[in-house]
Amino acid sequence: MRNNNTIQLSKEKKEEMISSIKNYFLEERGEELGDLASSLILRFIIEELALEFYNQGVYDSYKYMNDRIEDLLSIQKY
């Protein structure tokens, strides 16, 4: 059963992210991670952290749209 709150990724995007994790650990920490370790890190990020980033994006979009709507009211003619 899938959790509806979990962010779903395409196979291609998941592979790209796993590759990015592997590259990061190699370049920044000098550690070579395998596919399994990188997959587990990605899964942790998705399950534990991603919803916070998603929710922040929703909030930022809401604030941006509200600011634009207020700008729209400024062009009213009296």
Rank of each mutant, 00 (worst) to 15 (best):
M1Y: 07
M1V: 09
M1L: 10
M1D: 09
N3C: 07
N3P: 00
N4G: 08
N4E: 15
N5G: 12
N5E: 14
T6D: 12
T6G: 03
T6S: 08
T6P: 02
I7N: 06
I7P: 05
I7K: 15
I7G: 03
I7C: 09
L9K: 06
L9R: 03
L9I: 03
S10E: 11
S10I: 03
S10P: 03
K11M: 07
K11P: 02
E12P: 00
K13T: 12
K14Y: 10
K14W: 05
K14D: 02
K14P: 01
K14L: 05
E15T: 07
E16V: 02
M17R: 06
I18L: 07
I18A: 02
S19D: 09
S20V: 08
I21W: 04
I21C: 04
I21D: 04
I21Y: 04
K22G: 00
N23Q: 15
N23E: 15
Y24S: 05
Y24E: 03
L26E: 15
L26A: 12
L26Q: 10
E27K: 15
E27F: 11
E27I: 07
E27M: 10
E28Q: 14
R29P: 01
G30D: 00
G30M: 00
G30L: 03
G30Q: 03
E31T: 13
E32M: 10
L33P: 04
L33Q: 05
L33N: 04
G34Y: 01
D35P: 01
D35M: 06
L36S: 14
S38K: 02
S39I: 00
L40I: 07
L40K: 12
I41S: 03
I41H: 00
I41F: 07
L42S: 02
L42R: 03
R43L: 07
R43A: 09
R43F: 06
F44K: 12
F44H: 14
F44W: 07
I45P: 01
I46N: 01
I46F: 00
E47M: 09
E47H: 11
E47D: 13
E47P: 01
E47Q: 13
L49W: 07
L49G: 05
L49F: 12
L51I: 13
L51N: 15
E52H: 08
E52C: 05
F53Y: 14
G57R: 06
G57A: 04
V58T: 06
V58S: 03
V58I: 13
Y59C: 02
Y59H: 13
D60V: 01
D60W: 02
S61T: 09
S61L: 10
S61V: 02
K63G: 03
K63C: 00
K63T: 08
Y64C: 01
Y64N: 06
Y64H: 07
M65A: 11
M65K: 10
M65F: 11
M65W: 06
N66P: 04
D67T: 11
D67H: 11
D67M: 09
D67K: 10
E70S: 09
E70I: 09
E70F: 08
E70R: 09
D71C: 08
D71Y: 07
L72Y: 15
L73T: 06
S74Q: 14
I75H: 10
Q76W: 04
Q76Y: 10
Q76E: 15
K77A: 09
K77Q: 14
K77R: 14
Y78G: 08
